[in-house]
Design a protein around this nucleic acid. Structure first.
Lengths: 232, 232
DNA sequence: AGGGATTATGACAGTTTCGTGACAACGAGG
DNA sequence: CCTCGTTGTCACGAAACTGTCATAATCCCT
């Protein structure tokens, strides 16, 4: 269990909400900072570079969408996930929010449990292998910078699709994905391909991994899809 | 439309309120149980593991927040959504309630229609996606994210139907189900199958669980169906 | 204890799903 | 134009899974 201390910044002008969130998240071991306005948020973001931001959508002075857009322009801050907290849920709000660059939204009032679930979901989606461009699980190492893969320290050639597939698996370990989900994540949405195509690429990936006796990393989840496992 | 029978537990010390809710919900096909106190609620929860709890916030003896906190500590009960019923709604009440682990609140007086809407909303939020689901009872752990089952921490293989059957049982503990109900819930409605088919799959499930000496988890309810028990 | 009803169990065949090799299409670069 | 690497699809056999039946075992009531 690679439990990193998660750093959360809560931006909301109502102190009651801030405190409720702080209390709820603290119990699950997250470190929580608060800001009451957009301006204060910008300061704190620079100071402590949080892992994720919970942002009230309706605030005086600087509104949620505006802060979001501003963060998305800064090169340091553009990768910080944002969950927007909204009172109403008109379909329009949702669209504007996600367009502005938010990663998820949650409607007030919400329970701490739900919030925690969303935070974890967003973080899981966002973090692509720790920034240093090097992902390692077991005997497999991917250098995303040079786009090279090493099996037992030996460089091995991967085709483009095989590479992306492996990259996705390495960053989403121990979860099962349906063929449709894999097509979405690896090939991209709005692509019409046979689901069985996934099987073939799984096969090709397995074949390469087999050269280093690593075939067992990819498991079949019958009648559903595949899973990339890494034993503890 | 996957119409599942929703099981509601109403906890309120005023019998008039209980009956009103029971009447209002019964009309929309929900099965309603009642409890007049926190103690009685705890008993009924263990017996029938409801899908959702409607909890009066102001009660003698054990108050709403206290019961909530207690439920959130039990591993079996921690995932049952709770809607609190409150007379007043001060900002503080709201905060304490959600902090304690409630999922939503509704202010008295309310209409049956509103109540039904809230219930459905909370269930929709809580149940599906399954994203981060990890269910544990006794020595059995299901990880719905990776679609894996562990018996005594050891991963064990389950076929698709066996998996779904076990999943249903794990989320509906200590209640007995007829073969027809199991066919509905596990196989899906509008399926014509022999009822005896259930027996065979029960057998297969038992066989797997027996490898970890867990056979006693599935009990036969003669001339009715089966029940998945978990002792305290 | 007897007998009918209900359930457990093993076997089996039909069906679904998956692994695998082959192949044609395509584009880049010689 | 040809070659090479890559990719999506297909067809076929292997393996896994599923529903049903026949028979043994068990339970319940008289």
């Amino acid at each position: 269990m690679s439990e990193k201390q998660i750093n959360v910044l809560v931006v909301d002008d109502e102190s009651a909400i801030r405190e409720m969130i702080r209390f709820g998240l603290a119990k699950s071991g997250m470190s929580v900072q608060c800001a009451a306005s957009g301006q204060e948020a910008l300061l704190k973001i620079n100071e402590q570079s949080p892992d994720i931001i919970l942002l009230d959508w309706m605030m005086p002075n600087m509104s949620g969408p505006e802060l979001t857009r501003r963060l998305r322009k800064g090169s340091v801050t553009e990768d910080i996930p944002i969950i927007m907290l909204t009172a109403r849920v008109s379909e329009d709000d949702k669209v504007t929010g996600l367009n502005a660059g938010a990663d998820d939204y949650i409607v007030k009032p919400f329970s701490p449990r739900e919030l925690i679930a969303r935070i974890n979901a967003v973080l899981r989606r966002a973090d692509p292998g720790g920034e240093d461009g090097r992902i390692t699980t077991g005997a497999i190492t991917m250098d995303t910078a040079s786009r090279q893969v090493f099996l037992d320290q030996e460089p091995v050639h991967f085709g483009p699709t095989e590479y992306r597939l492996l990259e996705f698996f390495m960053t989403h370990v121990n979860r099962s994905y349906s063929r449709a989900q894999l097509l979405d994540h690896v090939w991209g949405t709005n692509v019409y391909l046979e689901e069985r195509t996934v099987d073939v690429h799984i096969r090709r990936l397995r074949k390469i991994l087999a050269t280093a006796d690593l075939k067992h990393y990819i498991q079949t989840v019958r009648s559903h899809g595949y899973r990339f496992v890494v034993e503890d």
